[in-house]
Measured scan of single mutants.
Amino acid sequence: SAVVMEEGSPGEVPVLVEPPGLEDVEAALGMDRRTDAYSRSSSVSSQEEKSLHAEELVGRGIPIERVVSSEGGRPSVDLSFQPSQPLSKSSSSPELQTLQDILGDPGDKADVGRLSPEVKARSQSGTLDGESAAWSASGEDSRGQPEGPLPSSSPRSPSGLRPRGYTISDSAPSRRGKRVERDALKSRATASNAEKVPGINPSFVFLQLYHSPFFGDESNKPILLPNESQSFERSVQLLDQIPSYDTHKIAVLYVGEGQSNSELAILSNEHGSYRYTEFLTGLGRLIELKDCQPDKVYLGGLDVCGEDGQFTYCWHDDIMQAVFHIATLMPTKDVDKHRCDKKRHLGNDFVSIVYNDSGEDFKLGTIKGQFNFVHVIVTPLDYECNLVSLQCRKDMEGLVDTSVAKIVSDRNLPFVARQMALHANMASQVHHSRSNPTDIYPSKWIARLRHIKRLRQRICEEAAYSNPSLPLVHPPSHSKAPAQTPAEPTPGYEVGQRKRLISSVEDFTEFV
């Protein structure tokens, strides 16, 4: 048969007729292969192709491409040299491709048809291009793949890379869960390890502090508590009631339409708007009261037996805890006409967050109470924005700035309102402590230090009264110190430094 060459192609190359033996071998191979691939376009007849790359030819070592076609129900084999250009295909004639002069020997084609199974398996396991790669995943090629499931790999992101949580363990979102698992493993320790309690022994800490320079003076030496005195035992138990972190309780009120001037209507609300609910979820963490331990979680007086509701929101960081007394989460009882059960919590909070959804101005004093010092007013606006402002009593104007209003988005509203309420509550605590000038409020841990110092002074006084020969370590507060001759004046800087060093040991009130 003659071949018409394309323009620009090399000279004529004689194409030899395939021997009958080659056709029989390739026909047997075509019957084993699956003929249901995917359909081509209507211009080209339905056909199945599979590209198999052999590394070497037997005796020649030339890479070839073998295409199996099922045109007219008769499979045909096409061998081509890759750099050459194939002729145009037609549905009426068999596929013809040019070969190099080196394939002119018909014996070479017979060798190609009689490829060993080793070469076929190696060509099938190679990388296939384009559409033949999808075909190689079918059941027909499963014989050339190794048996057994593939090893499982770690989760992959859409980009093909490992997620960040699997790369950096410290930033993994499941870090707290692993800590819980470690605690569970520790709890399952053997009885021999049960006595080993991690941490620092208080006796060891005391020993280090006792021999430090801070205890060089007799006034700073630790003293032993009497065991037989019940009054001192009660004082030590009272110390446990003062937490070592700051605590805040903040009221949250929802004002519906037409309720801006009605205290009873505001306290009777059992739910609010959708934006109000989203605002609550951002204030803190939802907790169930019956599962809380009052000595570990500050509840601000809420009952854990269901008297004040089942849930509330709280927030904490390293040095403070805040609980929100939310009116809509507290039960509304029919027998309580004046809502006294709610007001006994909300009316005693220094700061209230008022979500004013009424469309009218909310005035300070609508919720009557002796300790309502500051109101954080949240007014929802259009386009997911809110107006946040402050209202306070006249005696609080020096501590709280009420002249600045803020426009905040719904997303950042819980954070801004919480921070403003916490700052206002700190100012309210300082303002409330002014009624007792001898006990200015600095912080909870300073209050613990003052309680310890008062307890020490009482013990020293009782020891001096029981044994008059012992001198008083600290003179009583009601006694007057003996007159001392004025010492020589020293520079102001040295006096300030000495006073600062003494105050650092005794108390921190002056620095606050």
Rank of each mutant, 00 (worst) to 15 (best):
Glu360Thr: 10
Ser229Tyr: 08
Asn348Lys: 15
Lys296Ala: 06
Asp439Ala: 06
Asp295Asn: 07
Glu360Phe: 04
Pro471Asp: 12
Asp291Glu: 11
Gly306Ser: 10
Gly301Gln: 10
Leu329His: 05
Val495Asp: 15
Ser469Lys: 06
Trp315Leu: 04
Phe324Gly: 02
Glu270Trp: 04
Ala265Asn: 05
Ala427Leu: 08
Lys499Glu: 15
Leu253Cys: 04
Thr277Ile: 05
Asn227Lys: 08
Arg456Cys: 10
Gly256Ala: 13
Ser466Ala: 09
Ser260Val: 12
Val404Tyr: 07
Asp318Met: 06
Cys314Met: 10
Thr490Glu: 13
Ala327Glu: 04
Asp318Gly: 07
Asp240Ser: 05
Glu510Arg: 07
Arg344Val: 09
Asn348Trp: 05
Val376Asp: 01
Gln497Thr: 14
Phe508Ser: 15
Gly284Val: 05
Glu288Ala: 12
Leu239Asp: 11
Leu470Tyr: 14
Leu239Thr: 07
Ile377Arg: 01
Ala427Gln: 04
Gln293His: 15
Ile446Tyr: 05
Tyr254Asn: 00
Gln497Ala: 15
Glu360Gln: 10
Gln321Ile: 09
Glu384Gly: 10
Arg456Thr: 14
Asp334Val: 12
Lys444Asn: 04
Ser352Cys: 11
Thr438Val: 08
Cys314Leu: 13
Ala322Trp: 09
Thr328Glu: 03
Leu329Cys: 05
Pro489Arg: 10
Arg456Trp: 08
Ser504Thr: 10
Gln419Ser: 05
His325Ser: 04
Val388Cys: 03
Thr366Arg: 03
Thr332Lys: 13
Met420Thr: 06
Leu381Arg: 03
Val252Lys: 00
Ser409Arg: 02
Tyr493Asn: 15
Val473Leu: 13
Gln237Lys: 08
Asp401Tyr: 04
Arg411Cys: 12
Ser403His: 07
Ala417Ser: 05
Gln310Ser: 09
Asp334Cys: 13
Leu390Ser: 03
Tyr441Asn: 08
Gly359Ile: 02
Pro475Phe: 12
Pro468Ala: 11
Leu267Ser: 04
Val376Leu: 05
Arg448Lys: 07
His325Arg: 04
Ser479Phe: 09
Thr277Lys: 15
Val255Trp: 02
Ala405Ile: 15
Lys444Pro: 06
Cys292Asn: 12
Leu267Glu: 03
Tyr493His: 14
Lys221Gln: 15
Arg448Gly: 13
Lys363Asn: 13
Ala424Phe: 03
Lys333Ile: 10
Asp303Ser: 14
Arg344Thr: 10
Gly272Asn: 02
Arg285Met: 14
Arg500Thr: 13
Ile223Pro: 08
Ile242Leu: 13
Arg344Cys: 06
Arg434His: 10
Thr366Lys: 03
Ser403Gly: 11
His316Asn: 15
Leu470Gly: 15
Pro437Asp: 13
Arg454Asp: 15
Ala322Gly: 04
Ser504Tyr: 07
Pro491Cys: 11
His248Leu: 08
Leu225Lys: 08
Leu299Cys: 11
Leu364Ala: 15
Ile326Gly: 04
